[in-house]
Computed example of a mutant assay.
Amino acid sequence: MPEVHVIPIATHNHDDAHGAVIPRATSVLGIWAELIKVRLNAMVLFTTAVGFALGNPGAVDWPLLGWTCLGTALAAASASLFNQLFERRRDALMLRTRGRPLPAKQISPSLVFVAAVITGYVGAALLGMLVGLLPAALAAFNIVLYAVLYTPLKPRTTFNTLIGAVCGALPPIIGWTAATGRMDPGAWLLGGLLFVWQIPHFLALAWMYREDYARGGHAMLPVRDPTGELTAQVVLITTMPLIPLGLSATLLGLAGVWSAIVSLIAGLVFLALAIEFYRARDDRSARRLFLTSITYLPVVLAAMTLDRGPADLRALFRGRGSGIVEVIPAEAPR
């Protein structure tokens, strides 16, 4: 599913040093951890939990949240396994991926296939039986989208990034529907925020690794755009909507005023780094933009979660709390 570079139920892999070869795992546990992309999919679980918390701002149903995260984690693992299985030959051509377990021939492809099927089936089944049919269907759809559409499109069209962004947008929606059973406007807002965020996030990474992606035969925009002019334009255009999207959480009543303030500041910093990349179009500005992107998302989502609930500006300026509306039942008429 989306990778963080984080964010898909799968994602693109972004935490290696520029041009570095990923060292081979030396233990069985390490091999499987690399195959299911443990660190990258941790962000998937974080965004799922945020969607769950914002969907139901009252007391957290911890058992339900636990089953939601477990089912989502298994679905994310399945997507990662399928992705590495199908890309093992291209991974062998790239410096940053040729040390992965499959291209390094540390594990059998047939065993990885079986594991991918089992984790995907069990994850969707757990969600369906213990959480809800809608989050189960979304998780199953995300596995198929990531493995059957996104992965094969990577060497064929630059639009693969948009498909990958859809995969990364689904985890918070899974969390929201697990808590509510519905696709409310808040779910679409969170999904939209994740979708838009992934584009500048991934393009910054792809710019730094453009030579390696070309070596692997992947049709990433920076590979097809050697001057970086179009890449920089897309980065700038897709960074701009993050500010109104972040503020919309407060307008919709999902989060309070402090969340809006954090979202505004984080969005302006992100935009400033996108402008820097637009002007410079070099690896240094791309790296600064990428590092900012992986800070922006957890900061903004954490602010929304900690300040969840509709805002009351009068209460905020009177100093009576965080700006969360306190609903008081009306007194019955006498």
Rank of each mutant, 00 (worst) to 15 (best):
A49N: 06
M240Y: 09
D283W: 03
P8I: 04
A49C: 08
P152M: 08
G256N: 06
I328N: 07
A266H: 05
R24E: 15
T295A: 14
A187H: 01
F86A: 12
F317A: 09
S322A: 05
V6L: 11
G99K: 13
G246K: 05
F277I: 06
L193W: 04
F113M: 13
Y121E: 01
F141M: 06
G319P: 09
L81K: 08
V223H: 02
G175R: 06
E3K: 03
L194Y: 01
L40A: 13
R318F: 05
G164R: 03
A92W: 08
S110F: 03
L64H: 11
G267N: 11
M240F: 15
T305A: 15
V234Q: 05
L313F: 14
A274N: 00
L35Q: 13
A147G: 09
G55M: 05
L85W: 11
T47D: 05
W197T: 04
G309H: 11
F159C: 08
A115Y: 02
A17Q: 12
F113K: 10
K37N: 05
V6E: 05
T119R: 06
V44M: 07
A179I: 09
M1Q: 11
A204M: 02
R281K: 15
E276K: 14
R182T: 15
A330C: 01
H18E: 12
L134D: 10
V327D: 09
G19T: 10
M183P: 00
L111Y: 01
L65H: 08
I31Q: 10
P155G: 09
M240I: 15
G217L: 09
D312G: 10
F317M: 13
G267D: 11
P298I: 00
L254H: 00
I174W: 04
P172A: 00
A249V: 02
L251P: 00
V117K: 03
G120I: 05
H201Y: 08
R314V: 12
I143Y: 00
V114T: 13
F270A: 11
D91L: 10
E331C: 01
A33I: 03
H14Y: 08
Y213K: 07
D212T: 08
G181T: 13
L126Q: 07
P172M: 01
G58E: 13
F52A: 14
P109C: 06
R39W: 12
P57M: 11
E34S: 11
P333E: 10
D16R: 11
S108R: 14
L252W: 07
N56D: 14
G323R: 04
G30H: 02
G132N: 14
T26R: 15
A266Y: 03
L245S: 09
S78H: 10
M183C: 04
S259W: 08
D282Y: 07
G309C: 09
E276D: 13
F46N: 05
D91G: 12
S263L: 05
W176H: 07
R215D: 10
V6P: 12
V112N: 01
G71V: 13
T305G: 06
G132P: 12
P222R: 01
A75S: 15
T48H: 08
